[in-house]
Amino acid sequence: MKKNIGIIGSGIAGLHLAYALRNEFDITIIERHTSEEIRKGRIMSTQVHFGSTRSREERFNMPKWEEQSLIESIHIMIGNQKLFAGMLQEPASSVDQRLYYAHSMKDLDEKGVSFRREKVDNESAKALLEKFDLIIDCSGKNGPLFPFPLETELSPFPAPQRKCIVGYFAGIKANEPPGVSVTVLPGLGEMFEIPSMTEQGPVTILFIMAIPKSDLDVFKGMKNGEEFTCKMSDAVQRFFPHVYKRMDMEKFKLCDENGYLQTAITPVIRKPYLMVHDKLVVGCGDSVFLNDPITGQGCNLSSFCAEQLCETLIEWKHSKWDGEMGESYWKRTKQYVKEVTEWTNAMIGPLPEHVVQLLMQGAQDQDKANEIAQWFADPTTAFEAFFSRMNV
């Protein structure tokens, strides 16, 4: 008889786990929204699936997105000075999470994965322990639902370090070669420009990360998409004129009325397992490994940790699921989580001088530019670049 697993949440971590585990265990996804509500709802975040995540999606036999335009490069700017466009070793992709989640949920349902529509809070989460051999908390940025222990060394921030302002827009001419553009405004914040696919077709995601109370922190009290669009146009014209030059103001608009978001995240890393009433509970994705979005690693880290948890569960398939198994999962993920987090935390502050010098080298050397672009696809290389010289 197969063990039964309850997955709370249908984000990247929950969906990747469901696809990866569905042939080995009885899987139930517990989600408060239907796929249709998610598809028609507000955007949730930004997303870039780099090569390793796309490989996992293929390995897990997840749906393919044939119409998407692939991301080939990372453009880096400091102020209004374009430094370089580094080429990725493998193309990345970006599909609106509303479409990605909704389509995957329907596909999993057709493949026999059970769905239970329920809003889970801290109390009802404990009640679920009696119904499943294992509960996996994939509740995302709003989680966790269980008191996973804090990893204090990796969680130095008591409050959000950026205000996150996101809009999915039509009417912006794409960068060449096709890629993500990263603009750093020292003392103010950053903006990511990301080509993405939505139900309405291709869009450009404008993602401003404003340092709180800086001059870039101007998005307050937006009541609707029209006000948000006007404010975004003004902010881009003032702070990011290189992007504004590629905007067709007659066509510049949100992809739909729910295509914008304002939020702020306090980065927190937790040990991803604990025992509750003598039963193991594990966490996966943002519920336990919540990084600042400044390095674009959220969905990729969630996918990586889902893969590691999947391999742990299959390895322990015929063993007792207890704290020892939880520790095995943590050991599989800890080093990678640490390197992603320490790089991300370093990006929040002023860049170290040796990193600035590397960026300047990238402006003169395409091979170095390509290496820097690869930081985002393989953050272990970014960790090495940031910290290996500092420790010499």
Score class of each variant (00 low, 15 high):
residue 225 G to W: 04
residue 90 E to D: 10
residue 290 L to E: 11
residue 21 L to E: 03
residue 23 N to D: 15
residue 57 E to T: 02
residue 31 E to L: 09
residue 51 G to L: 05
residue 219 F to S: 08
residue 337 V to R: 01
residue 60 F to R: 02
residue 283 G to I: 05
residue 359 L to C: 11
residue 287 S to G: 08
residue 360 M to H: 04
residue 88 L to R: 05
residue 113 V to G: 04
residue 55 S to F: 02
residue 342 E to Y: 05
residue 211 I to W: 07
residue 194 I to W: 01
residue 190 E to W: 12
residue 11 G to Y: 08
residue 24 E to D: 15
residue 359 L to M: 14
residue 215 D to Q: 09
residue 8 I to M: 07
residue 136 I to G: 05
residue 237 Q to K: 14
residue 162 R to I: 04
residue 74 I to Q: 03
residue 375 W to E: 05
residue 21 L to I: 08
residue 371 E to Q: 12
residue 253 K to L: 09
residue 239 F to R: 09
residue 26 D to P: 05
residue 85 A to P: 05
residue 267 P to H: 08
residue 89 Q to H: 09
residue 165 I to C: 05
residue 238 R to K: 15
residue 325 M to L: 14
residue 234 D to R: 08
residue 155 S to K: 03
residue 112 G to Q: 05
residue 91 P to V: 03
residue 383 F to G: 00
residue 226 E to L: 13
residue 85 A to R: 05
residue 33 H to E: 09
residue 341 T to E: 08
residue 106 K to L: 14
residue 97 Q to Y: 13
residue 234 D to Q: 11
residue 274 L to W: 06
residue 60 F to H: 05
residue 203 V to P: 00
residue 273 Y to H: 08
residue 361 Q to V: 11
residue 108 L to Q: 00
residue 327 E to H: 09
residue 304 F to A: 15
residue 119 K to H: 14
residue 150 L to R: 13
residue 128 L to Y: 00
residue 218 V to C: 15
